[in-house]
């Protein structure tokens, strides 16, 4: 049935004599495999060699702090709403006076847990965050022996403190620029 002018029949010619005696194309195939035997191997020996992931790779989450070391999260819950896997659980708390150096906003997440076993690393939470608080990092989630090893609490998600733990903080930033003074209105 011809529907368009663009159709073109595939090349389905009958076997030539040379092809019909099997050998020719088998030898051709064998030449290819032999050639590959001496080619450079594509393998990345994983635990020793590591491939660099793309800068936008969606791996384990990181809860961001600002340059003063205050947690960015304000527990607005948008990430939990946006999460298709419903893997994010959080409990909001009011910031008490005297905690200003800990939390940037008036509200903060007293408990912030992500179930990595549920999480599908779609990146929608990162996109939903209005407070520059949650990011997916370039580290993939490691395997573990039991389910409870996958409930990542706030301690495991927070980026190292930029002032008290500067070294780790820089390491976590990787090749990103250290955050210059972003202006925040509130």
């Amino acid at each position: 049935m011809q529907l368009t002018q663009r159709a073109k029949s595939v090349d389905r010619q009958p076997l030539t004599w040379l092809e019909s005696i099997y050998l020719w194309n088998i030898l051709k195939g064998m030449a290819i495999t032999l050639r590959h035997m001496f080619m450079k191997k594509a393998t990345i020996q994983y635990p020793e060699q590591q491939r660099t992931f793309s800068k936008v790779f969606r791996g384990l989450h990181v809860l961001n702090r600002d340059e003063a070391g205050r947690e960015n999260c304000t527990a607005c819950g948008l990430c939990a709403v946006a999460c298709p896997a419903e893997a994010i659980t959080m409990e909001a708390a009011e910031r008490q006076p005297g905690e200003e150096q800990l939390y940037r906003e008036e509200k903060y997440a007293a408990k912030y847990e992500i179930n990595m076993l549920r999480c599908i690393f779609c990146g929608l939470c990162e996109e939903a965050c209005p407070k520059d608080a949650i990011y997916l990092s370039q580290t993939f989630a490691p395997a573990n022996y039991a389910r409870k090893g996958f409930i990542y609490s706030k301690d495991e998600l927070l980026i190292p403190h930029p002032i008290t733990d500067r070294e780790a903080y820089v390491k976590a930033l990787g090749d990103r620029q250290p955050p210059h003074s972003t202006t925040h209105t509130n």
Partner: peptide
């Protein structure tokens, strides 16, 4: 091993 080498693997 040979299968690996032929398939660009180790």
């Amino acid at each position: 091993k040979i299968a690996g080498w032929m398939q660009d693997r180790m």
